[in-house]
């Protein structure tokens, strides 16, 4: 009973914050609302007995990803301050599509049998998880480490100062752009500034 009440509360929190994430007019706030959603998810993990996942969720997601996101928002802003608009359009269209998707998913869940189980398994211990991770799934684990390494390198290459953006600008440059296109004067200043921040 208590568990059900907990689930209800957490679910409410999660959906409310999620809607704030997609509806908030301020990008910084939206990011912070996402933190709320993730925290609520961590709470749900704890309720269903996946305590390790809950802690990982808090550490990695709320700590790491959130920080990264905030950084992302900050370094791609010209202005100081928290007034970062997060424009949205086509709300009706998006809502219809989202509701449609939800209805279909709900119908699928409704039609699938054997989902009305109450939790019966004992809580998962960290030792169990660790053993599974490093014995059973050790190969996938190693591959994942390679992937992360590749991601680090890829992200650095993409965000380096020597900007691939020049190629994109060349597309927008006026027709006779046979030589290396000089960046438009207004953009070049910002360009330098941003790269300084990136560095």
């Amino acid at each position: 009973m208590i568990q059900s009440i907990g689930f209800g509360l957490v679910a409410l929190c999660m959906l409310a914050t999620a809607i704030m994430v997609v509806r908030s007019d301020n990008l910084i706030r939206a990011t912070l609302w996402l933190g709320g959603t993730l925290l609520a998810t961590a709470g749900l993990y704890a309720i269903v007995g996946a305590s390790f996942l809950a802690s990982v969720q808090v550490l990695l997601y709320v700590g790491g990803v959130m920080t990264l996101m905030i950084f992302g928002v900050m370094i791609t802003r010209r202005h100081e301050g928290l007034d970062v608009p997060a424009e949205s359009t086509g709300g009706v269209r998006g809502a219809i599509a989202a509701v449609l998707l939800f209805v279909v998913l709900a119908a699928a869940i409704d039609k699938t049998e054997g989902l009305d189980v109450l939790r019966v398994t004992p809580p998962t211990t960290t030792a169990e998880l660790g053993r599974a991770l490093l014995v059973e799934h050790v190969f996938a684990f190693e591959v994942l480490s390679l992937l992360l390494l590749g991601t680090i390198i890829g992200a650095i290459v993409l965000a380096r100062k020597r900007d691939l953006g020049a190629a994109v600008r060349a597309l927008h440059a006026p027709r006779p752009a046979a030589e290396i296109p000089a960046p438009p004067p207004s953009a070049s200043g910002d360009d330098d500034a941003s790269s300084k921040v990136a560095a």
Partner: peptide
């Protein structure tokens, strides 16, 4: 993205019903 979502919905409808 909208096209993808609608496609997924369509596939899901087909898969479910």
């Amino acid at each position: 993205v909208l096209a993808v979502v609608l496609g997924v919905v369509g596939l899901a409808v087909w898969a479910v019903f």
